[in-house]
Every structure is written in C-alpha cells, then in structure tokens.
C-alpha cells in the first residue's frame, strides 16, 4: 500500500488535513474496512489520516441526564465491556459483541462502522432504536444529525468533504426500557448479518398494549431501517396470534432485501419478520422478569 500518513492530535487538525485534499485523503481508525479496501485496490488514497492519536475521540462520558456520549474512536471491545452499556443500553452491548472477533473488535470503532455505512453494520439497528445522534466535525464547525438521517444508501452517508464523526450520543432510554439485538448469520463469529433486528421495549400506560416498542432491522434494505408500522401495531393491542401476524406482515412490507451470494431476498424478508417477533418476545420476557 502506497500512501502518506498524517497523525494529528486534534479533531480540528484532522478536519483541516482532510478538507484540504477532498477525495485524496481518507480517515482511518482500526483499518478493518479501510485497509482492506485499499489493499483490494477499491480505493487509492494519497493521504491517510490516522485518528488514533486524538484524545477526544476515545472519551466515554455521562451526559448527566442518564444519556451517554461515546467517542467515535473507542474500540468496540472496550465499549462492549463497559458496565453502563450492559445496564442501560443492552441492545448495543449485545450488538458490539456480535461484531467480527475479539482481536477485530480491539481494533475497530463505532466511527468506522457508521462511516462505512454497510447495510449490515451491527451497531446501526441498536443505535436506531436508542435514537442516537451522530456528532460530526467539519470545516463548517460541528453538527449533530439523528442517526436516522445519517445513512443515505449503501456506503453513503451525510458526511461531507473534511467531515469526521467525533461522537455518538445516546439519549437516556425511556424508564424501565430493555433491549436486545438478534443477528442471524451463517456462523457465530466473523460473519456479516444476513438479517439483524434490534428491539427496545418499555412499560407505557398510554399504550393500549401497556408496552411500547422500537424496532430496527439491518441487512434488509439499502440502509439500516426503523420499523415504525410494526411499532404501532405492537403498541395498539395485546400480543395475540393476530397481532403477531400483523407485525410479521408489517416488517415484511417495510424491508427491501436483495438477493446475493449469502441469501435470497425472499429468505431475508421472512427471517426479518421471524427475528422481529423473537426480539419482541425476548424483550417482553426481560420486562416481566424485571432484569436486563
């Protein structure tokens, strides 16, 4: 691989270098997407901007209101091992442990996972149900879009020239919320999801069913996807056979999977419905049990 490397100490410096060379400069943290891409000749950056020396990117901070701020460069394995993630953001903790393998997770990050914007990115469905925001720093300053507005298509995001992700903000989850992440793949480690679903549920007296849910799916559309129609149905009534069928139908109608070497679209569509119902059942069991 043939490129120059810059190793800035601050976000501002990184942004400046990236903005000076639009198209020719690329950020790197773990390299698990970028180095592989460059080695395969899929991109040829002239300059690689190493973000690993920027202190700000490896901070994890309480936001004071029950939310959490996750630096874009904290290794996924470090995040997965943090007790506050397991306690308050269980769906995300489960999803991080489903990424690749232990040595891969010690060298890869949320910033990289989101910026790559694979429809199968494991961090995306839990971050969608947690209604995370993405803080972006660029030549024009900082902005903070919702993750739901961040993905534009497969491998396409709202990141403009010179922009990097600095942190991911998790707002406080609804009181009593429990979450889960189910990844369906051919093997348990080192494999991308064929279909994945994250669910977050919490007691809500105003919902006819007594429980409100958020659902999101991965690997079944050009971008990771919230499933609002299924969420409505779950809030509207008791989870009987009729509701289950309606939820399944709503999920199947929302997803737009592709056929590829790993699975057929029809299979992915059915599995999305199945996983959504399994995730809901799992959350309901933990809500009844009162423990995460």
């Amino acid at each position: 691989m043939d490129f120059l490397i810059e190793q800035p100490d601050t976000v501002e410096e990184a942004v400046r270098i990236l903005a000076e060379r639009p198209g020719a400069a690329r950020a790197v943290w773990g390299g698990s997407d970028l180095v592989v891409e460059v080695r395969d000749g899929l991109s040829r950056p002239e300059v690689v901007v190493d973000l690993t020396r920027i202190r700000e990117l490896v901070e994890v901070r309480e936001t004071g209101d029950g939310g959490l701020s996750l630096g874009a460069g904290v290794p996924l394995e470090h995040l997965a091992r943090r007790p506050e993630l397991a306690e308050r953001f269980g769906a995300l903790a489960e999803a991080l442990r489903a990424v690749g393998s232990v040595p891969l997770r010690f060298g890869s990050t949320l910033g990289g996972n989101l910026a790559t914007a694979s429809p199968a990115a494991d961090s995306a469905p839990p971050l969608l149900v947690l209604e995370a925001e993405v803080e972006i720093a660029g030549p024009g300053g900082r902005r903070r879009p919702a993750l739901a507005d961040f993905f534009q298509g497969p491998r396409r995001t709202v990141l403009g020239p010179g922009e990097i992700i600095t942190r991911i903000l998790l707002p406080p989850p609804p009181p009593g919320a429990r979450g889960t992440y189910l990844k369906f793949a051919r093997r348990r480690a080192l494999d991308l999801a064929l279909v994945s679903v994250a669910a977050l549920g919490w007691p809500d007296a105003e919902a006819a069913s007594g429980v409100r849910f958020r659902l999101a799916a991965g690997a079944v559309a050009p971008t990771p996807l919230r499933l609002p129609a299924a969420e409505e149905i779950l809030a509207a009534g008791r989870l009987d056979e009729e509701t289950r069928t309606a939820v399944r139908r709503a999920v199947e109608a929302a997803v737009r999977p592709i056929d590829d070497v790993r699975a057929a679209a029809t299979y992915r569509r059915e599995m999305a419905g199945t996983l959504a119902l399994r995730a809901v059942d799992r959350v309901l069991r933990t809500l009844e049990g009162g423990v995460a």
Partner: peptide, 19 residues
Amino acid sequence: CTVLVDGEPRLSCITLALQ
C-alpha cells in the same frame, strides 16, 4: 497475524505500523 498491542490482541495485517 494476531499480536498483542499494549496487552490487547490486534490483527497486525490491518493495523498500520505507524499507528
């Protein structure tokens, strides 16, 4: 290619030396 960096297992084939 697994090695330990500051005691943590890392994949040396996708880690840049200067990192």
